[in-house]
């Protein structure tokens, strides 16, 4: 037992070393970053963070990211919950093939869809909007959400549905009052994964935005190379991109723990 704990601690140290290094870099002056290797900043500075917080570009990028990621999570869940229910409860004509086809969307490499998306969204006149990116990310998030939710829903005995309907619950009422609370941990887990994958996606977000909806992941790449590499600034922005994710993890941690305890992911 002790040995396992030691191994775990070693692993977590390795896991967090790169993150520590980024925080460390973000608190150094550019001069120190380029001149020498220091384990803790010699000249502690918050200038990099101050620069980001006072820059309109960075602030709007962060807002754009948050808006389209939330939009994507909502669309994905609204579309995936009924579909997952159907897959978990009924074997209908073609359901097996449909399920595999849905999964293949998860496999589609984003690079493949870059150009068609651009053309399609131009035609629909939603190019460079939050909706465009949110819809594009549904490509991989809806299949994932259906997959996760189907697992959770299959774990809930069918008798519950039948009893509730015999007791005179209408279907929507049964779904909202009885079924939904039962799968809430699953929805939490699905939301967490959708948030993650939408938040970190780069190719589509980059291809579909110009200025109005430019997300922080794109602003980060643009920051490279413009006026030499501003390592400190990039590291600070990188640290800040982890913050919303960390907040989400904090809020859904109980759901996730319960979801994991149910053994269904």
């Amino acid at each position: 037992m002790r040995k396992r704990t030691v191994l775990l601690i070693i692993y977590l140290l390795v896991l967090f070393f790169p993150i520590y290094w980024m925080i460390n870099t973000s608190l150094k002056t550019d001069n120190e970053i380029l001149k020498e290797l220091t384990l803790i900043p010699k000249d502690l500075t918050f200038k990099n963070y101050a620069e980001i917080f006072t820059s309109e570009l960075w602030r709007s990028s962060f807002m754009n990211s948050i808006v389209y990621v939330c939009l994507n999570v909502i669309i994905s869940l609204v579309a995936a919950i009924p579909a997952a229910y159907a897959f978990s409860r009924w074997k209908f004509r073609g359901s097996h093939h449909l399920f595999f086809w849905l999964l293949t969307n998860r496999m589609a490499p984003a690079a493949v869809f870059m150009v068609p998306f651009t053309e399609l969204y131009y035609t629909l006149q939603i190019y460079d909007t939050h909706l465009a990116v949110a819809l594009a990310h549904c490509l991989f998030n809806i299949p994932l959400a259906i997959w996760i939710l189907e697992g959770f829903m299959s774990g809930i005995p069918r008798e519950i549905d039948e009893t509730a309907l015999i007791d005179g619950y209408s279907f929507p009422r049964f779904f909202a009052k009885i079924f939904f609370p039962l799968i809430a941990p699953g929805v939490g887990v699905a939301a967490f994964f959708c948030f993650t994958f939408s938040w970190i996606e780069l190719i589509l977000a980059k291809a579909l935005t110009v200025t109005n909806a430019k997300p922080v992941v794109v602003t980060l790449t643009v920051g490279i190379g413009a006026e030499g590499v501003r390592w400190g600034l990039l590291a600070a922005a990188g640290v800040l991109t982890m913050v919303p994710g960390a907040i989400v993890v904090y809020f859904v941690r109980n759901y996730i723990a319960r979801g994991f305890a149910l053994g269904r992911v």
Binding site: I19, L202, G245, F260
Partner: peptide, 23 residues
Amino acid sequence: CLVLLGIPLLIPFNVVGIIARVL
């Protein structure tokens, strides 16, 4: 532990690239 393990997953791909370049 779950939260700690979840954090690296939330780092955007290009930030991972930046970390690699810094390292």
